[in-house]
Write a protein that binds this DNA or RNA. Structure first.
Lengths: 195, 195
DNA sequence: GTCTATAAGTAGATAGAC
DNA sequence: GTCTATCTACTTATAGAC
């Protein structure tokens, strides 16, 4: 609010994204005003428009950046091995990645309905890329006879839904450590798809 | 909008709830105005306040009614039997009940953050009652040696998260019938908790 | 019970000074 | 690049006529 004038382009842009991420996650996109975001950053509302054309684009960029980070990080970590090893890696990766950025995860699937149709389609395409990764593992495992799933597409969606649930209840410092949570979910997933 | 004056108390109340349910599910609580709800009902905005004290109470009643219907319906249908039969009944009940009312389900967990703290606590209590039902089944099955879950609380949350995922993709008339979906998910759940 | 009119405030976005 | 000021439109909720 009280703020000296000057040039801060390198720093203000990321701060706007960070403020929007936190506020959208807590209150929801529609409930947060541009003035609230500006106040959290420490600028006036008009200054936001040096960095984003409009509120919708701000939301879209948060979601797109999150999905691209998800895909890039996964590509770097995905290893080879037999289907069971690949599935275990996927489960551990998914839980860990999502627990590390709860705000972005929350937004990326709670605010889908607030995207324009064009932006929605682009996000859904990225989500499809990620799901295909798991589906390939389940398909390969089924072909090799080590997995037995009634339907690879539904098994994919079922496993991801189960893993996403972790974000709704996990708090670090709680009853279970991250390693224990990963072990528990890996146990359930492994059995659910076992031959 | 053009609307003759007169008395419609028996019919307008439920129509307000129905309109709010649909609009909140589609656009989100914060993004829907009282005028939009009124327009969908066919009255002016002021008339809504003969039925609800404010917008927050309208949201709360939708969520409370949904949760109470869930609990009441479950109580009527829950049968006895061995733990595996009870678990199968729960899975089938959960999928069917939730697919029958996608709007209410969507609201009941997407709009939790828009409840006042008091209203939030009341809804969470009802949700806890429902989860306890499944947790009891898993506990009894584990004690009897027919299930083996690393942690009954996490298994409860994991199973419910997986089942809730059905609502995000199922469309009647799609590739799979309701019976097939139930069979697929029952297969995965059964194996996930099997001894 | 519904209407019209209105109060009092906030929304997203822009213009122009500095 | 940020500020202040402002435009236009919309928000929830209420008052009082019918």
């Amino acid at each position: 609010m009280a703020r000296t004038q000057g040039s801060h382009s390198d720093i203000t842009g990321p701060r706007i994204q960070a403020a929007a991420l936190e506020l959208f996650a807590r209150h929801g996109y529609a409930a947060v005003s541009m003035r609230q975001i500006a106040a959290q950053v420490g600028v006036q509302a008009g200054a936001l428009y040096n960095y984003i054309p409009d509120k919708q684009t701000l939301l879209f960029r948060l979601m797109r950046d999150h999905m691209e980070t998800l895909l890039d990080t996964r590509r770097m970590q995905a290893g080879a091995g037999d289907p069971e090893a690949r599935l275990r890696d996927f489960v551990r990766f998914h839980i860990r990645f999502h627990l590390e950025r709860p705000d972005a995860v929350f937004i990326a699937y709670m605010e889908l309905r607030n995207l324009t149709p064009e932006n929605f389609a682009r996000i859904e395409e990225l989500r499809g890329d990620y799901e295909r990764d798991l589906q390939d593992i389940l398909r390969d495992g089924s072909a090799a006879g080590v997995f037995s799933v009634p339907d690879t597409k539904l098994a994919t969606l079922g496993v991801i839904a189960m893993l996403n649930g972790v974000n709704t209840w996990y708090r670090s410092g709680g009853r279970l450590s991250l390693d224990e949570v990963e072990a528990v979910y890996w146990s359930m997933v492994r059995k659910a798809v076992a031959a």
